[in-house]
Computed example of a mutant assay.
Amino acid sequence: MLETFVPMRLTTSGATIHLVKAGTGYPLLMLHGYPQTHVMWHKIAPRLAEEFTVILADLRGYGDSSKPEDGLDHYNYSKRAMAQDMVEVMSQLGYKEFFVVGHDRGARVAHRMTLDHAQRVKKLAVLDIAPTYKMLMSADKEFATVYYHWFFLIQPADHPERLIGAQPEYYLRSRLERWGANSMEVFTPEAMAEYVRCFSDPTCIHATCEDYRAAAGIDLLHDEADMPHKVQCPLLALWGEKGFVGHKYDVLATWRERATDVHGHSISSGHFLAEEAPGETYSALRGFLRG
């Protein structure tokens, strides 16, 4: 899937991050979502690598990156800690400034990175999310029905871990099918094999629960402290027209509450834009990053 990309493992102050890298040009960091890995970009990353130096990283707790201990108040899975990993990774690769594209959880990490390290991120693209604080603080019956996993995964360990661990492949496939366009055909067999391999690891299941526990706790405190501050770099918001985010929120208006320079539009897909509509997603990202 990513044969031209070179694999690496880099140690940060809090984790060991697995990544792959290819291409030449301005550096572009791409971050995946739940319950996937960097492989989710395999349909568009090779094309982007024709014009950019593309770095695809597994977030801490996911894929082949390390799974640190939880930390006080789940801090080690806060978006601040995850963002710090990626800034250190980019520094080790020699990049002081770079673009960031994030999907789902990766977009939440990217949002935090752009607040904590504003001088480093020159453009930000977020795929199929509204800001975490907005989503949790406005949650209603419809939200809780569609995004029930947010409330399931934050339950104390090891309740969700045991339930997911009983049939991890079934759980993973059910999540991908429910959030997508209701067709598993968009996920290639090779990508699915990687998702299943990584998500079948009990330490990955626990770490990804910790990601959500942090989101419902310490991440909200960090967001509240930063309410007076907005993302200053150009921000592109893309969302699936068949998904929940665009149905529930005025995505551009919501992001304009948190950023000063917002553009974006829907993509003809469900939640998994890069795999369901790779051509349209690639074109939108390239146009933004090259503009």
Rank of each mutant, 00 (worst) to 15 (best):
D223S: 08
V101R: 05
P156V: 02
A130E: 04
H229W: 07
D261H: 13
F187Y: 01
M82P: 07
Y282V: 04
R47Y: 06
E3V: 15
V39K: 10
R258G: 01
Q155M: 07
R213P: 07
V54F: 08
M184T: 05
H271V: 07
Y170K: 04
G279E: 15
P234T: 09
D64V: 09
D250Y: 07
T254D: 09
H149S: 07
Y26W: 06
H271Y: 15
T4L: 14
T203W: 00
H111A: 04
M227P: 00
A125T: 02
D104T: 03
A216G: 13
P228A: 06
K96S: 15
K43L: 05
A15K: 07
L289H: 05
M135G: 13
A107R: 03
T24Y: 15
L153V: 01
G33H: 03
D219S: 10
R258E: 12
A237V: 11
P189E: 05
R112I: 06
G102W: 03
F187A: 04
L124P: 06
A57S: 07
A57M: 06
L238W: 08
G25K: 15
E280R: 04
A15D: 10
G165N: 10
Y95V: 09
E257I: 07
A125H: 09
A277C: 09
T114P: 11
S269C: 08
V39W: 09
E276R: 08
E3R: 14
P35Y: 03
G165Y: 05
T188H: 07
Q167A: 14
C198E: 09
I17H: 08
E257N: 08
R162T: 08
H74C: 12
C204N: 12
K79D: 08
Q119M: 14
A207I: 10
H117K: 11
C233M: 02
F272G: 00
R197T: 01
H229Q: 05
I267G: 12
E280A: 05
F99L: 15
L72Q: 11
C209W: 02
F288A: 04
F152R: 05
D261C: 10
L289K: 02
M86N: 13
L163F: 00
